[in-house]
Design a protein around this nucleic acid. Structure first.
Lengths: 242, 242
DNA sequence: AAAAACCATTTGTCTGACATTTAAAAGTCT
DNA sequence: AGACTTTTAAATGTCAGACAAATGGTTTTT
């Protein structure tokens, strides 16, 4: 691991990159302890502060964790699916909010991805996830539910659908798409009639999954997408008029 | 923005979180300049080093960028799709390499997602992306191509397919799934016969996209998935024996 | 043998200094 | 007046050294 003191890049960036490369290449393995900050500052011929800034950059990406005290130090972190989920959700949320992605674009992506999960969920039809889906459908039918709570339940339903595919990589990839849309969805107000239509489609999708009919589930999702987009365009039209 | 000096969490973590919250909530908008490091250290009542470590954490997530010199400082960054892509790819790669995700799981996720793009790509059939696909198919037929180059071309073909859906959110979500698998794919050696089968399927997929037949493209991808998994299982079986 | 005191190591934080970069201000020449 | 050069001030980047706080191990005491 070497750095170039004459490069235009900041030293802390170079050091972070060097360590990151070592992790990705496998030269540093999970749970391995990095040299102490003083040792690293000797190795790289920089001050301890510079090393620390580099380590903080890595910690921000969950690549390392640090522990104080004797036999403490910085350790290569096993990137958990959970860490990856939350990073994914943060990034997706920022992307959507900062890049003015249209509701339609986000919606299209989300439902396309969910339809990809449907056949797998139907093939595996986990009792656990089906129960969650049914429970959320029930909750969505309760009177007095606020729009925000309805949305949250909607997200929970869709997550169960996705997780039901039993593929952690898919769940990870989709976490962002589903969760990041929640703020956008929260702008919609759902009338009693709207809710009825949506829970009806949810039921249709859950039924299809239960009977193992993936393409029926995908068709249900397709209709749900149209419904969602219609609702959203109504909201935007009304807002534009006001 | 307040922090709690008695909390167990490190000060730099708290400060980073406070600023991050301000960005996500919209209190700090894109391209807005943060107070200088000295001002922040006054505000939070901590030293400049601590503020700097917090800022490095945010910079590592592309939430801010810094500029030196007069009228320099830290600015809220507009998260570009490009930044998001590379973060996504790094995270996916680490996830796959550290968590011992099986080839089948990764493969299943990847092709499920790609099949989700197929109908959209077929509906839009951008001339540009189709040309890229054809070019990569041509390249894959060239004799003397190394396995690694064949794989790289394969990735390029699939990226074109995905990008052809014309949905940046989808492209972003899929970048990780497609690129992160490349190291796994590189372990496979492709015989001439294998390559013929694969480029044949690529051609079939490209043809389906060109004629706007999304389900045919999806079916082609399905066959390609089976083929890929068969090749991989042969490699693993051979390796297990040796 | 158990508890307490001590110690060494390591990260976290603080202080103060200097180097480097950069845009704006001031000055100078035509 | 306008174009060019020099100076200046502000900001980040880096360095050095110190102390605080946490933590596991070792030694001493009870």
């Amino acid at each position: 691991m070497k750095i170039d003191p004459n490069s235009s890049a900041d030293l802390s960036v170079q050091i972070a990159q060097a360590i990151k490369d070592a992790i990705i290449s496998g030269a540093l393995i999970v749970d391995e302890r990095l040299p102490s900050e003083s040792e690293l500052s000797d190795q790289f011929k920089v001050s301890r502060s510079t090393v620390r800034e580099a380590l903080k950059r890595l910690a921000a990406q969950s690549l390392i964790r640090t522990q104080r005290g004797a036999s403490g130090g910085a350790f290569v972190n096993r990137l958990s699916f959970e860490d990856a989920y939350s990073q994914q959700i943060t990034t997706s949320t920022l992307l959507l909010s900062m890049n003015a992605v249209s509701f339609d674009t986000a919606c299209e992506a989300r439902y396309a991805l969910e339809r990809a999960c449907a056949p797998l969920s139907a093939a595996r039809r986990s009792a656990d996830h089906l129960a969650t889906m049914r429970a959320e459908i029930f909750r969505q039918g309760q009177p007095g539910l606020t729009d925000v709570a309805f949305c949250a339940s909607d997200v929970a339903f869709h997550r169960a659908l996705v997780d039901g595919a039993g593929n952690p990589v898919l769940s990870y990839q989709l976490a962002g798409a589903v969760e990041a849309m929640q703020p956008l969805m929260n702008m919609i107000t759902f009338t009693a009639r709207d809710r009825e239509v949506i829970t009806g489609l949810h039921t249709r999708i859950a039924d299809a999954i239960e009977t193992g009919d993936g393409s029926a589930a995908a068709a249900g999702l397709q209709d749900l997408e149209s419904e969602t987009r219609k609702l959203a365009s109504d909201v935007f039209a009304a807002r534009a008029q006001a």
